[in-house]
Nucleic acid binder design. Structure first.
Length: 329
DNA sequence: TGACAGGGGGTGT
DNA sequence: ACACCCCCTGTC
């Protein structure tokens, strides 16, 4: 049962249109890609047409100053922007990395000699790595320490709600008639606050967003970035090792968070984040029982190669699905 | 229905 | 190794 506490969103959306790029994910792969720990800004909901809930499941995603809907319709992925947004198509193309041949990248993984990896790939065909805004990715993963996805999403939602700028695209006059509503989403969509904005927010106000001890890290990181104009942009452009060395200078950013930011926010596919799921995966499926994160990271890079981050995402998806309880051998 | 633990996708000391 | 925070979830 979904919690419906917000007002019904009333906004104007363009017509559904097919997504270019030939991505045809299964519902499970789509959900894993959008809501499996890469991004914390996608919401699943049901469309309402003429006051009646339709069986159509809609994903609403927000990133930078963009918001878009995705929908899997008879196996085909469709999307729609708000009627006033004319930059949504290229933005979505970049965000979903539609120009990247993920099938070819996956094929380049060592699944032929790795039965478990082959099994993971078969379970989530079409899984891909998102290409999210760098700064937002950093913010999301600064929230992630010892938190599950639902909780991280809640923190991000509160940060956006209380400190983010409204997305003007949804506030423009509704010239066409309202076509449909989406249940359970606030009428006013806001973006995540920028790092510039975060630097001006007192830590006590950040704490009100359920950040806990992460509030101190975010406040300190915001000050660090504010004192160094261009630092974040330069870091995004650096090669993997150099970028990671800089990211771990930030308070609250260790190896794991840095790798997540580089993998999901900078397209660095060699980044191999080692969290407890990956630790469990390699312990259980690869016999690396008792190995420490740094050792597992080294194993991952050498075993899975230059696309280790993509392999990690497959392992991660499998473990999230099967790892909790009864695990296949 | 409501209270109560337990534990969580990590970092810093 | 342990504190940091405190919300979510499962359970009684």
């Amino acid at each position: 049962m979904t919690r419906i506490e917000n007002s019904i969103a009333i906004s104007s959306w363009s017509d559904w249109q097919p997504l270019v790029g030939n991505w045809q994910p299964s519902p499970a792969t789509l959900a894993e890609t959008l809501d499996g720990g890469q991004s914390f800004r996608w919401q699943r909901s049901m469309e309402i047409v003429g006051g009646v809930p339709s069986p159509r499941e809609i994903w609403t995603g927000t990133w930078a100053d963009q918001v878009a809907h995705l929908c899997l319709h008879d196996g085909l992925l469709e999307w729609r922007p708000s009627v006033t947004n004319h930059s949504a198509a290229p933005a979505l193309t970049r965000y979903l990395a539609l120009d990247t041949d993920w099938a070819a990248l996956t094929d380049a993984l060592p699944w032929r000699s790795d039965a478990h990896l082959a099994r993971c790939v078969a379970a989530f065909p079409g899984l891909r790595i998102l290409s999210q805004p760098f700064g937002e990715t950093l913010l999301g993963f600064l929230c992630s320490a010892t938190k599950q996805i639902v909780q991280i999403k809640q923190m991000c939602a509160l940060l956006a709600e209380r400190h983010g700028a409204p997305l003007q695209t949804l506030l423009a006059p509704r010239s066409p008639p309202v076509l449909s509503n989406v249940e359970g989403l606030p009428a006013l969509v806001r973006r995540l606050p920028t790092w510039e904005q975060l630097a001006t927010i007192p830590e006590k106000d950040l704490r009100l967003c359920q950040l806990g001890f992460r509030a101190r890290f975010i406040a300190a990181t915001a000050r660090f970035i504010a004192e160094r104009p261009g630092w974040l942009e330069e870091t995004e452009r650096l090669p993997y090792a150099a970028a990671k060395a800089r990211l771990v200078e930030l308070p609250g950013v260790g190896e794991k968070v840095a790798d997540c930011v580089l993998l999901f926010g900078a397209g660095q596919l060699e980044a191999f984040p080692v969290d407890t799921w990956v630790l469990k995966s390699l312990a259980r499926r690869y016999g690396l029982t008792g190995w420490k994160p740094a050792q597992v990271a080294h194993f991952g890079r050498t075993h899975f190669g230059p696309l280790a981050g993509l392999a990690q995402q497959y392992l991660f998806a499998w473990e999230r699905k099967h790892g909790g309880r009864l695990a296949a051998p």
